[in-house]
């Protein structure tokens, strides 16, 4: 039987060295709510697990002036309990809070949710919609990339050998900017998104949309930024006509598969519905802040 090694370094450098020098598959454990399930089912058979929860830089939320810094392994429960973040980006914090249960929230992290690279990851669309970036550490030092550059396909990321996620930088909202995230699941909780949708909008004079980002989850191999959906919003109030254009743009952008969680037809239809419903919440919030 191949052995499985586990280390819990306390510095970024130590973690990079361990990941870079591992001969076989090495995995980061930033909570383990996906990884442990994969280990148990035999879907992932790493030779090395690097627990990043002991690295102080990876835990906690900081106010860095024009942006928030969220450690990549910060537990979801801390994110939903962070009042300034909840006020700034209710869509992000609600999305994080949708993941799993209370118990899962004690372990699950933004970094883990992103690097697990599921098209249905709940926290990812809202973070992308907020134009967040992430800091990646690796053998060649650190680099900062947009969040949408990380996931390249189901279970696939752009991270190179020895690289892992350190933190997220989430810009603070402009005046009259807010966000929302909705997902559709057959149950009310403890489930995986059949479709997810994040909308981030900035309103200008008389409630007209000045800027927008719309991100869909679970309708393509990765979470997708949908510029056509944003264009449907920019320059408009949220009236019936705008909603119809948004719905159509979201449907057009959706390229889902049929699997046990939903059919192509169903996902496309619900993507349009969710886009409308999410936009309505985001507009309302932006108008009130």
């Amino acid at each position: 039987m191949p052995g499985l090694s586990f280390i819990a370094p306390t510095t970024i450098d130590e973690a990079v060295r361990a990941l870079a020098s591992a001969p076989g598959l090495a995995k980061c454990l930033a909570g383990g709510t996906d990884l442990l399930v994969q280990l148990r089912s035999g879907r992932s058979r790493p030779e090395l697990i690097v627990d990043t929860k002991r690295i102080p830089d990876l835990i906690g939320i900081r106010d860095a002036g024009d942006h928030f810094v969220i450690g990549a392994a910060t537990p979801g429960a801390s994110i939903s309990a962070c009042a300034p973040l909840c006020r700034a980006w209710p869509g992000i914090t609600e999305a994080v809070d949708l993941i799993g249960s209370q118990q899962i929230q004690g372990r699950a992290s933004l970094g883990g949710n992103l690097c697990n690279a599921s098209p249905a990851a709940d926290s990812v669309p809202a973070v992308i919609a907020a134009r967040a970036t992430c800091v990646v550490a690796g053998p060649e030092g650190t680099r900062e990339v947009p969040v949408e550059a990380i996931v390249t396909g189901p279970g696939q990321t752009s991270l190179k050998k020895g690289e892992f996620l350190v933190e997220f930088h989430v810009p603070k909202p402009a005046p009259h900017q807010s966000d929302a995230y909705l997902r559709f699941i057959p149950r009310t909780e403890m489930d995986i998104a059949v479709v997810g949708c994040a909308v981030n909008v900035t309103l200008g004079e008389r409630g007209v949309c000045r800027d927008a980002r719309v991100v869909l989850g679970a309708v393509a191999p990765t979470p997708i930024l949908v510029p056509e959906a944003a264009e449907a919003l920019v320059g408009h109030w949220l009236d019936e006509e705008t909603l119809a254009r948004l719905d159509a743009a979201a449907r057009r952008a959706s390229k889902p598969i049929t699997d046990k969680r939903g059919t192509i037809e169903y996902r496309i239809k619900v993507a349009g519905v969710l886009a409308r419903r999410t936009a309505a919440i985001a507009f309302k919030r932006a108008g009130e802040c």
Partner: peptide, 16 residues
């Protein structure tokens, strides 16, 4: 069987 677990074999949860 494609859904041999409680994630995709959906019994109701309390909030349902």
């Amino acid at each position: 069987l494609d859904n041999p677990g409680f994630l995709d074999y959906r019994i109701p949860v309390a909030s349902d």
